[in-house]
């Protein structure tokens, strides 16, 4: 697991090694991969905006709950950005080698995390509303 992570991280920083593999794919596939990377980056930015918004707008909520939700969203955003790089490298390498594109359970985890956070915020808002 650790060795696999180290190998993945080394690949992020060494495009020469990426270029040494296989053949250059059709430029349109590379551009599509780049747009997917940017879309994941925007997802990360949206999570950051969500975290900052929770902190700024849910001011009636208890400090601990509000900060916990905000930090969870911000951490999710950071994770999303890191994963965007990893997925970009893996897709680029798969295209060069002519392999299938990498499958990932990350979108499912992100969806579940988002749903859980939304439910938490909803419950917190309703409870806070009933409390006043």
């Amino acid at each position: 697991m650790v060795r696999r992570t180290v190998r993945a991280v080394r690949l992020w920083f060494s495009p020469e090694r990426l270029r040494a593999e296989g053949t250059t794919p059709d430029y349109r596939f590379s551009l599509a991969n780049e747009r997917t990377f940017l879309a994941w980056l925007r997802t990360a930015l949206a999570l950051l905006a969500g975290g900052i918004a929770v902190d700024q707008f849910l001011t009636d909520m208890r400090w601990a709950v509000r900060t916990a939700i905000a930090v969870a969203l911000l951490a999710g955003g950071a994770l999303c950005a890191i994963r965007a790089v990893n997925h970009w490298v893996r897709s680029e390498r798969a295209m060069r080698r002519g392999d299938d594109l990498p499958a990932s359970r990350f979108p499912t985890l992100l969806a579940l995390g988002t749903a859980a956070t939304a439910t938490l915020v909803l419950v917190a808002v309703v409870v806070g509303w009933a409390g006043t």
Binding site: W12, T24, N33, L41, A78, W88
Partner: peptide, 21 residues
């Protein structure tokens, strides 16, 4: 026929988002 972005561009953009977080 643009080439794929270099690693510095991809890492730089994602790194900026991580540090912003």
């Amino acid at each position: 026929r643009p080439a794929a972005p270099d690693a510095a561009t991809v890492l730089g953009a994602a790194g900026a988002v991580v540090v912003t977080a």
